[in-house]
Design a protein around this nucleic acid. Structure first.
Lengths: 346, 346
DNA sequence: CTGAAAGCGCTAACAG
DNA sequence: CTGTTAGCGCTTTCAG
């Protein structure tokens, strides 16, 4: 039962506790030989310093936290890897924490800051609106990423660091593409249409495209997912498409606000005996790797993951190290036309 | 900058710190009115108790840790959800931690135990062999899950709690099925064949099936993935299948030791202008949800996820609460024949 | 029921 | 370069 403390090590080495502390913290003021001796004994006895105690004392930590909302979103995996690499090169450490869909990420952030003394936080995914008061309490720099144009309606002085794509425009482009392919009965699979969220923005893009091309918006072609826990599931995409296509066989194209939902939709289309893209075109959103392995390859709005990850973490370090003001950075998203979409049947 | 401590709250409430402590810990020895007053002020001021300080003092926590190896394995998402639910019902709290492919999960466990004082640990995924000495140091109960038959060659007294399916047998069944369908040139996509790992076990099952049916093992039909970081990727599956099929067009079936790899393999097959299952049958392993949404639906060895999660967490609590000895539990895996496999071409 | 006081394991002055 | 010592914020006896 290993419950070794720094005291035990100090005793075993015949030195004081502070010397041991210096050894494990790479402190300069220590004789290399003493350090070596101590480190050897530590390795031999298998002592792990207690971080609770460390964090209690320390005032800062050269570490940053990655707060990911939604455990299973494959979209974030790449971003995390890229940011971890960057942080490591900066000689900081990363703390990765997944927060449940129902948890309040700002509250979690608060605990992490006070407990782990992190210098910065990246919020990946999650809700759109945050309690500004709680945010102000946060004794660390933070940046939101891939959540949407948070600052859309914010006043200048309330701006928060945010990296996102222009969801409205990107969605609009995607639907416009479908219209150009001759589609008129275009369904939408979305979520959160009536509350500030990426779902809402993407829904707006869909409507904008239709309106600008003089196509009436038919609410019965819009399926809104209502589940609270993990709305972005293949199962929900399946249900949505199944219901839409059964009730409205005239649908020739589906725009889904996430790739994962789109996979579910594809399954429903196949199960109904229809072909993609011959009978129904499908367009997703996100541009996750999986889409390229799917059969047929999924047409999608690709968010520039690597670029976004890089910009996000760079901006965070700018804020930490150079005290730069929070920026609102909108990045371009690109429609990638693959095999799951094509001309409308005539 | 919210750095409130229990002292601030005590002062604000006009009580002692210990009373505040009692309030936030639902301690029985406290006047309900006093508690209410304190809780109100805490809510108003937005105080979060510092867990580092708490853990430093506490000797136990009614919490268990879920240690997941490999961030992006969709196979675990379900298990985690099920176990979290169970833990919650037991009125314990869950601590979820992802550990990188290169990290030593036992070392991470060690820190978590000493810092968070968790009572139990579930190791999900990860390596096969562990330093028994380090394990013995762990001042908590632990169970390995979905890693493979760890105890295969262990002596009785060294047994470690382990939940797994019989990988050899299940793989053997899967390959036998392919043989029964008339396939003779069956390729294998695997990983870790030469070190104790699930990959090795599944590879053994493949060989066993061939041998028992008098089919010679041709090493050139076995592709072993060598990358260290995340071998179980679609990309690796793609490369493997591409290389196999290009060099050996006579292959009519591929057994892949994971569904994710199988998806990659499918893409390669399509890219080579072949059809699934008409030209090449594909069988995966794991039974993840995605397989059912894939086109064609993936034939796979399904591990009973829900059941395994339940058994895993139940056994952990047995060990914690009733001091039951570690058990070695082998669960049945089931071959699910779907659309990605069929009779061999004649 | 409540407050005072003693540490939990560690780091960071402060003296040597 | 090294040891001594004072807390970090909290829980938990121990007296009231």
């Amino acid at each position: 039962m290993g419950e070794l403390t720094i005291k035990d090590i100090a005793k075993a080495c015949g030195v004081g506790v502070s010397t041991v502390s210096r050894a494990i913290n790479n402190h300069p003021d220590i004789n290399p030989e003493t350090r070596k001796k101590i480190m050897d004994i530590i390795a031999e006895k298998g002592f792990t310093p207690n971080n609770s105690a460390r964090n209690l004392k320390r005032t800062e930590t050269n570490s940053i936290a990655l707060l990911v909302k939604g455990i299973s979103n494959p979209f974030f995996a790449d971003m995390i890897r890229i940011m971890e690499d960057y942080v490591l090169r900066k000689r900081y450490t990363t703390l990765l924490r997944h927060v449940g869909n129902d948890d309040d990420e700002v509250a979690v952030a608060q605990t992490i800051v006070t407990e782990q003394k992190v210098k910065g936080i990246v919020f990946l995914g999650g809700t759109f609106t945050h309690d500004q008061a709680a945010l102000d309490q946060l004794n660390a720099k933070y940046v939101f990423s891939t959540i949407g144009n948070l600052n859309e309606n914010a006043t200048e002085d309330k701006k928060v660091a945010n990296i996102a794509v222009d969801d409205i425009q990107a969605s609009c482009k995607a639907v416009e593409y479908l219209i150009e392919q001759g589609h008129r009965n275009i369904a939408l699979i979305a979520e959160g249409l009536n509350r500030p969220s990426i779902g809402q923005l993407r829904g707006q893009g869909y409507k904008k495209a239709l309106l600008e091309h003089g196509i009436p918006i038919r609410p019965e072609l819009i399926y809104e997912i209502k589940t609270t826990d993990d709305p972005y599931s293949m199962e929900n995409g399946y249900k949505a498409a199944f219901k839409l296509l059964t009730a409205h066989p005239e649908i020739t194209a589906i725009f889904s606000i996430s790739d994962v939902l789109a996979f579910g939709a594809c399954r429903a289309i196949f199960d109904l005996g229809k072909k993609i893209p011959e009978d129904v075109s499908v367009v997703g959103y996100d541009g996750i790797e999986q889409g390229d392995y799917y059969n047929p390859r999924l047409t999608t709005v690709r968010q520039p993951v690597e670029e976004m990850a890089r910009v996000t973490i760079e901006h965070l370090f700018e804020m930490i190290e150079e005290n730069v003001d929070p920026k609102d950075i909108i990045m371009p998203a690109e429609l990638q036309v693959k095999a799951s979409s094509g001309k409308a049947k005539v």
